[in-house]
Design a protein around this nucleic acid. Sequence first.
DNA 1: TTTTTTAGTATCGGATCAATACCACAGACC
DNA 2: GGTCTGTGGTATTGATCCGATACTAAAAAA
Lengths: 197, 197
Amino acid sequence: MLKNPVVLLDLVDRLANLMRSEFRRIGSDEGLQPVHVQALMFLEQANRFSNTPQALAEYLGLTKGTVSQSLLLLDRRGLIERYQDEIDKRVVRLRLSPLGEAFLSESSPAALWQTATRDISANRVRYSVSVLRTILYELQNYNGGPPFGVCSTCVYCQRKSQRIHHCTWFGERLSGPETRKICREQVPKTGYLSVTE
Amino acid sequence: MLKNPVVLLDLVDRLANLMRSEFRRIGSDEGLQPVHVQALMFLEQANRFSNTPQALAEYLGLTKGTVSQSLLLLDRRGLIERYQDEIDKRVVRLRLSPLGEAFLSESSPAALWQTATRDISANRVRYSVSVLRTILYELQNYNGGPPFGVCSTCVYCQRKSQRIHHCTWFGERLSGPETRKICREQVPKTGYLSVTE
DNA sequence: TTTTTTAGTATCGGATCAATACCACAGACC
DNA sequence: GGTCTGTGGTATTGATCCGATACTAAAAAA
């Protein structure tokens, strides 16, 4: 087995290409492109600090103008809802509409992936996640832009009680389910990145 | 750390999106799109049984018509050379031109990735490669199309002597360097896929 | 020979995507 | 307050991708 990291890059690219084809297939009934499916999947996961066009653009690695057009399309199709932020009236908040949620749960874009990873032990998945997350984190250091991790592994997330967490970055309370969503400001705690060893 | 395989899918997608941006940046000087950079990288690695438009289309998950157009562009720019196969006159063989090789070595599209993975131990890389390769292999079972692995880990590749290998699929000899290239007919040996455990 | 399959190309139209310009709001500085 | 600058988002334009379809040529099969 080659140890060259380029092999890993090759695999990541190729897996992404295949899933891109899958997303194309998934979306073809509704006339959606792969990027639209990806956007819907992001909105399903984004927490309430990260459900904006800007965050989505950073997540997808596209420009805000490009993403804005995709969001217009999703809005016209009734798959998402857009509403103005209460405090900062410039920002637009996004959420899945009931139709959008129904689309995701019916088409389940990740189903093929779930099947393909069915026989891989949780340990192996965890281990690989740790490695890839480290790479992602490093890439961001050179690229700018947030790594988008879940709150539960973030340095800013503090557990107050059984059910209540607190985000010291935004200064707001988080419910348990909220800590499983992804945030653009996440900074991983030590121990959740693989070390050089 | 979440053990849900969907987190892994998310990471793969995101890393691919970032590298896509990187490829866009790399290619912008030459007016190349990300997919063109990916095509050149593929041709750098493909062995002599897999350097065809059809193989590239399968590799990228695109249709042959689409890939044909990209190849025309790369040809016009002088980055690749196309020539007819000796035996089967339908198939077109592809190789990097000196200009294409120079472009890759000067721009080195994988440089950012190399930097990001610098501090990750060879063991961790190997382990992750093994997991991702298993997923890729499974995805292909449902998707059709070859997984594209290196000859050295293929069941058809037999070592004849110190320097000479033999491919029992194509019935041809392979040199040492050739066994490090990727082939569309590769079938991984047991032991090179991670097991359920 | 005839038919079918396969590798590749040509053409068309829809859609992505970046770039640029633009608008609205927020915050800073005076 | 008033001005300036930065930021979040949209509108528009043009280049390019990409799939779909139709097509050619060669191989393989019947």
